[in-house]
């Protein structure tokens, strides 16, 4: 299943090279990772890898690059919050890390073709959303309208600023961005992400929404999306849970009966509507 050999153990990572490190903000860095022998990761947008640093531990990280741009490398956008992510931030180009994956169930891109797509990522949620956004933009002709509504806490926390600018300039992308709190540099929208929804009119039946962010954001964004009449199974999310194995055994990622690392992390709202622990 996985292109990375597991040498009899699903827990042993393969070595991979950090080809490039780029600071995106004070808290987030983008890592370009190269697998040995030019292998391609072969992922779907929405899937993740388990990143290992021996002696420190392992952390699940979403694949941020699009499969359409793989050519032997993939990208991870990592926020520094603790041991593994902190140590990753200390790595230099050329360093070796361990990788297992791709893991989990991503977004069913094939089902999205021909549809209008409304992206609503918040904060770090842009990292996984970007994988799908860039695939959609690279295969632009096979999708309908592309709308991107992005929210961050403040201007300094906006991720992928060059790409945001490129999206803003494209005539075939409807792009809106907002920050919860502005500063002197900011002349754009101010307010939480839900304040952007009044600016877009959608054909609900033909729209797929993809929203990724913290649990509190989901509650409010879901109300907006459902309020626009978008069907439950066309509203997609990615849920974050603690993960210790990524292979459906350790129990940490369980959301009631669902294993987030197996059935997820991408879920549509119909799948998790009655699942109390989901959001």
């Amino acid at each position: 299943m996985s292109p990375i050999p597991t040498v009899g153990s699903v827990y042993v990572p393969s070595p991979a090279r950090v080809a490039k490190v780029k600071a995106l903000t004070v808290m987030e860095k983008l890592f370009t990772i190269e697998l040995p022998w030019g292998q391609s990761l072969g992922h779907q947008p929405g899937q993740f890898v388990e990143v290992s640093l021996f002696g420190i531990g392992e952390a699940p990280i979403s694949i941020s690059s699009s499969p359409s741009r793989s050519n032997g490398v993939f990208e991870l956008c990592v926020r520094k919050v603790g041991d593994v992510t902190g140590a990753l931030h200390g790595l230099e180009e050329g360093a070796t890390i361990g990788v297992r994956g791709p893991m989990g169930t991503g977004f069913p891109v094939e089902k999205f073709r021909g549809k209008d797509i409304l992206f609503a990522p918040g904060g770090l949620g842009l990292a996984p959303a970007r994988s799908l956004i860039n695939q959609v933009l690279d295969e632009r002709g096979s999708f309908g309208r592309v709308m991107i509504l992005y929210g961050a806490r403040n201007p300094a926390e906006l991720l992928f600023k060059d790409e945001l600018e490129a999206w803003r300039q494209r005539s075939d992308v409807e792009f809106l961005v907002t920050v919860d709190r502005s500063d002197e540099s900011w002349t754009g929208n101010v307010g939480v992400i839900t304040t952007l929804f009044k600016h877009v009119v959608v054909n609900p039946r033909n729209t797929v929404a993809v929203t990724i962010g913290p649990p509190v954001m989901y509650r409010f964004v879901l109300m907006e999306l459902l309020g626009k009449g978008i069907p439950e199974r066309q509203i997609w999310m990615s849920l974050e849970r603690r993960m210790k194995c990524g292979v459906g055994k350790c129990g940490h990622c369980q959301i009631n009966n669902l294993y987030c690392c197996q059935q997820g992390p991408a879920f549509n709202y119909a799948q998790i509507k009655g699942v109390e622990e989901a959001i």
């Binding site: 827990y11 021996f54 002696g55 531990g57 392992e58 210790k244 194995c245 350790c250 129990g251 940490h252």
Partner: peptide, 19 residues
Amino acid sequence: CYCFDVQDRVSMDRKTGER
């Protein structure tokens, strides 16, 4: 019950270890 945690244990010189 079979849920588990995963941890790394390293040697004093941090060169070798086990997960």
